[in-house]
Amino acid sequence: MAATSVSASPFLGSWATTIAGEDHTLLQAKAAPPQVRMARPIRPRPMMKNVNEGKGIFAPVVVVVRNIVGKKTFNQLRGKAIALHSQVINEFCKSIGADSKQRQGLIRLAKKNGEKLGFLA
């Protein structure tokens, strides 16, 4: 039996040569396409609109009043009403001895209820 040298082994040849019939170095050059950086896609700007529009039982009334008195006046009136309601909640929390965390929770609950009923439409 003759000793086979390492160079006679079929595994030292290129897989590219046996499969594609081309030189391995050429395949490596073809396999790696140039890196091209793509620009970031342009995102549309978020629209500032009321997500509560048309929801809730009082929403139609709120929309009609806003259209009659104007947006600026309506927002001023709504701000005053919200401030008064927050004062009532604060006074209630003082009378029952609730801490600030519970008071904040009640104010959040009032806001959620106002959204559901349509007062923030």
Rank of each mutant, 00 (worst) to 15 (best):
N67T: 07
R66K: 15
R78V: 07
V61T: 12
R40G: 09
L77N: 12
N52S: 08
A31E: 06
I68P: 00
A8H: 02
A16S: 12
A16C: 14
N75I: 06
A29N: 06
G70K: 06
W15L: 15
A32L: 12
P33M: 02
K55A: 10
N67Q: 12
K55Q: 12
R43W: 04
L26S: 01
E53P: 03
P44I: 01
P46L: 13
K30E: 08
N52W: 07
L27E: 10
A32M: 13
R78K: 09
R37F: 12
E53T: 13
T18G: 14
A16V: 14
M48L: 14
V51H: 12
I57F: 11
L12P: 00
E53H: 13
T73L: 13
N50D: 04
K72I: 05
P34E: 09
E22F: 11
T25R: 14
L27M: 15
G13E: 11
A59V: 04
R40I: 07
K71R: 13
R66Y: 05
G70L: 03
K49W: 02
F11L: 07
I19F: 08
V36S: 04
P46C: 06
L26P: 00
T18H: 11
I19N: 10
T17R: 12
A32P: 04
I57G: 00
V36E: 11
T18W: 11
G21C: 02
P46W: 09
G21M: 05
T73Q: 13
G56M: 07
I42G: 11
R45D: 10
E22T: 14
M38T: 14
A39W: 03
A39Y: 00
K72S: 09
P10F: 00
A31L: 14
A32D: 11
V62H: 04
